[in-house]
């Protein structure tokens, strides 16, 4: 065997190994597993993010110190941002591929279709998902980079550390902005309501003893996210936080 063909067959073996490594992803069940793991990362993040943001009720010192602390620990901040970015990207890629497959699977719809057992939240994941993706872009431009914020302040201009308290109060003083956030939180509630238990089902975890509890937990988490997150713009509009 010549050197060239040996190298070629080695390359062939390597690509066969790679395709086996990611072979699980070729089927819809593998794609759903990716949706589930990345969704779990997202769901965990939104809960932590809400708990962090609720510190706005403890006053500007606590809130801004929290923001400063995050910026003073770059491994935490950039580590979390990297993981989240990858998770969101994979979640979107898998969702687009699955949705394309699902649309092709039902080329002609019913003249009449009546839901028999599904929740509104579960049927509208395809709507709440893309709208939340748009919201995330706006949200990052608004409170993280400040591009979409008319009076974005820094507590440490030299190191570009934003002042979250002042930015939140100024941002939510605009009722239109607050309304956008509240609508987005309703979408998040719907998405989590189904997604936070459905992800366990996708990963193959369903048991009559635990699944009802997981479904209740997902519901509770979705309502907590709605109430906790909406409390902030509502408090700013009501003048409680100023």
């Amino acid at each position: 065997m010549s050197v060239g063909s040996a190298a070629r067959s080695a390359a062939g073996a390597r690509s066969a190994e790679t395709s086996k490594l990611l072979g699980f992803y070729h089927s819809p069940v593998g794609k759903k597993a990716v949706m589930a793991v990345t969704g779990l990362i997202g769901a965990g993040f939104v809960i932590g993010h809400m708990l962090g943001n609720l510190q706005v009720f403890l006053g500007p010192e606590v809130m801004n110190a929290y923001g400063m602390k995050l910026h003073e620990t770059p491994p935490l901040l950039y580590g979390a941002r990297t993981v989240l970015l990858i998770a969101v990207a994979l979640h979107i890629i898998a969702a687009v591929q699955l949705t394309r497959m699902n649309v092709q699977a039902r080329p002609k719809g019913y003249a009449k279709w009546t839901p028999a057992g599904s929740s509104y939240a579960s049927r509208t994941m395809r709507v709440s998902g893309p709208l939340l993706a748009l919201f995330i872009v706006y949200h990052l431009l608004h409170f993280t980079s400040g591009v979409a914020h008319p009076n974005f302040r820094y507590q440490d201009a030299l190191h570009k550390v934003p002042a979250p308290y002042e930015n939140v109060v100024a941002g939510f003083a605009n009722p239109v902005v607050s309304l956008v956030y509240i609508v987005a939180m309703i979408l998040l509630m719907l998405h989590i309501h189904h997604g936070a238990w459905s992800l366990f089902q996708s990963l193959g975890l369903n048991h009559p003893r635990y699944t009802p509890a997981l479904r209740s937990l997902a519901r509770a988490a979705s309502y907590a996210l709605l109430i906790g997150n909406c409390a902030i713009p509502l408090a700013v509009l009501a003048g409680v936080v100023k």
Partner: peptide, 26 residues
């Protein structure tokens, strides 16, 4: 298509097969 875990299937199944089976398949 792919399963979205919405449960319409088990609601109409004449034999009431549970979606717990779908988790086992996954």
């Amino acid at each position: 298509g792919a399963c979205g875990n919405i449960g319409e299937c088990e609601a109409v199944c004449p034999k009431r097969i549970s979606i717990e089976n779908i988790a086992r398949m996954h």
